[in-house]
Computed example of a mutant assay.
Amino acid sequence: MAVLAIATRNAHKVDEIWAILSPLLPHVHREEVASALDLDAPSPVEDGVTFEANALIKARALAASTGLPALADDSGIAVEVLGGSPGVFSALWAGAHGDDDANLRLLLAQLADVPDQHRGAAFVCAAALVLPDGREYVEVGRMEGRIVREAHGDGGFGYDPIFVATGQEVSNAQLSAQAKNEISHRGAAFRAMAPHVAAVLAEPGR
């Protein structure tokens, strides 16, 4: 029986979030964590203009439809010379939602004439926990780095092949999943969220 819902229909994303949370939640078992797809929950319209707003929209909808504590996140890449864009529009920067290759190629083209010293960027993730009783928690994680001039690696997803995190010599797409989780924006956000989740699931009656 599920005790925690995660607002995604992507099984790989559930696994990634669980890999981050599980060492910090030793009394929770993987089978007690369900996705929005597992729970046949509706998908809300994500019309927020910040990562925090969109994460809360998803978590609120899932908590309301399932009656479970609900986790959600929203993330993207913020490029300094573009004033923080693509930001919340990262997944549809080229016009079609989730076309990673088109988004990546468009961003590289937009930065083609930008000198290396001005190609700073950050991946940002807002994680939200919403309870059916209305309590809400939000944590934000960042991974600072820079946009390189061509794609490297075939791991990860989205803009990972053109992003090199501060302190790294290779792109996110060349890192192992574990190495990426240790430094990623999503890892930081969900590690900060873990104590809230643990406290909620330890309450009497859960």
Score class of each variant (00 low, 15 high):
195 P>T: 13
75 S>W: 12
71 L>I: 12
170 V>H: 13
55 A>D: 02
117 Q>D: 15
48 G>E: 03
63 A>G: 03
101 D>Y: 10
38 D>N: 06
137 Y>W: 15
71 L>S: 02
126 A>F: 02
32 E>F: 07
91 A>N: 08
179 A>H: 10
59 A>N: 02
74 D>A: 08
72 A>C: 01
201 L>I: 01
74 D>I: 05
184 S>I: 09
162 I>K: 01
164 V>N: 03
185 H>S: 09
98 G>F: 03
49 V>S: 14
180 K>L: 05
83 G>W: 08
147 I>P: 00
163 F>I: 07
128 A>Q: 02
169 E>K: 13
61 A>I: 05
94 A>T: 05
165 A>P: 01
125 C>R: 10
203 E>D: 07
87 G>Y: 07
24 L>C: 08
189 A>C: 07
140 V>W: 09
111 L>A: 00
192 A>S: 12
174 Q>L: 12
57 I>C: 04
70 A>L: 01
57 I>A: 07
176 S>I: 11
42 P>V: 05
85 S>W: 11
113 D>A: 14
149 R>M: 06
195 P>K: 11
202 A>W: 03
162 I>W: 01
21 L>K: 02
32 E>Q: 15
100 D>H: 12
18 W>T: 09
194 A>E: 07
150 E>W: 13
55 A>K: 08
57 I>D: 02
61 A>S: 15
148 V>K: 03
37 L>S: 13
93 W>E: 00
110 Q>D: 13
72 A>M: 06
128 A>K: 05
78 A>K: 14
115 P>D: 00
